[in-house]
Design a protein around this nucleic acid. Structure first.
Lengths: 193, 193
DNA sequence: AATTTATGATACATATATGTCCCATAAAAG
DNA sequence: CTTTTATGGGACATATATGTATCATAAATT
């Protein structure tokens, strides 16, 4: 899609978002000068495209959400069951490590910004729906609070990301570990003597 | 213990550490002025006691580690099994929510500071020893990488802390949830048809 | 090819957090 | 009670990130 906006702008924006994702992900106090340099873009251009630092953070946050949405959109269609959807989710999300790192490190900054917080809460609501579907299906225990399950998913993202960074494990193996931990951890105990 | 240091210094230090724990935990870009004010202490006093902001962060980090150590020291003695030690650990650690929040939000700042990083790594090594003990005992699966189990513990701390902040759940219930998720999640599957 | 438009470099203004110094005062220590 | 010592407040210096404005140049759109 050509999109009726100047090609130079699109190029600059892409470079800035990518650089910001990397630098702000690694160190949330990275400077706009650092980001401009990393993006091979003049500092003026950055300020022309994003009025303030918060707007840049917001733009990157939105970008991350779009990535997540794109990666997780078709889960419910492709999955055999509501539970399996979580497996596909881990497989789809773990490769987005840069975006994950950004959202992780974002943390407190997100709470202050209403727009970023809205994004974050929407993600959680989507996961909550998946949890409820799995409960309705009978594959997740109704004893487990939905809020716990949702936060557990986030936590498993975190654990996967950290483990992937420390050890040299590929995303697929991590996704399997995460899903096994998730499902066996809060699955309804089928047959117990 | 009177400790041969002036009573005023001890009082100031305690107030500063407490204020820093709270403010830096909530927003890692809190100002030294903010902290001094919250501690009801002159800014000069803060600078007299801690030469730089990093030193203050370090001091708070050390304080947190001491709290964790104090809370988890007797686990292995009191626990019936290596696995149960994790249950006691969750119960002991979750009430330290301020310290947890600080260490969570610390994140990237810790990696930069060698002393804080050393503290962090030591914590992980201690947990790794507990994991290995539980593996040796046969209550945790040897299939699960120790690194994964360690990061899972951290992740469950995170999930517990977030859930506790969102919902109004008491620490004991959260500890039970976390332990159940942990043990059923990576436990050796006893009898499976 | 002509025109429009984004770019990058530079200079400039500003706010703010950090860190230092000093001194009268108050509170411990002896 | 006397001496020692930490405190708090204020003034001061400094570095640095943010944000603004200008303009010649280069790259797109037409």
């Amino acid at each position: 899609m050509p999109s009726n906006v100047d090609a130079r702008i699109r190029k600059s924006q892409a470079a800035i978002i990518s650089a910001g994702l990397e630098l702000l992900g690694r160190n949330s106090e990275a400077t706009l000068s650092d980001i401009a340099q990393q993006a091979s873009v003049g500092r003026s251009t950055l300020y022309r495209l994003y009025e303030t630092k918060e707007q840049l953070m917001r733009a990157i946050g939105v970008h991350c959400m779009q990535c997540f949405d794109a990666a997780t959109q078709h889960l419910e269609k492709d999955a055999d069951s509501a539970l399996q959807a979580f497996h596909l989710m881990f497989k789809a999300v773990l490769p987005l490590s840069a975006e994950m790192e950004f959202l992780m490190k974002l943390g407190d900054a997100a709470e202050q910004d209403p727009e970023l917080d809205a994004i974050w809460q929407k993600q959680k609501r989507d996961i909550a729906l998946m949890v409820d579907a799995a409960k309705a299906e009978g594959s997740l225990s109704r004893q487990v609070p939905t809020a716990w399950a949702v936060n557990l998913v986030e936590a498993l993202f975190y654990a996967s990301w950290v483990t992937g960074a420390e050890e040299q494990m590929d995303h697929d193996a991590l996704a399997d570990l995460a899903f096994a931990t998730f499902s066996h951890g809060i699955a309804q105990q089928a047959t117990r003597a």
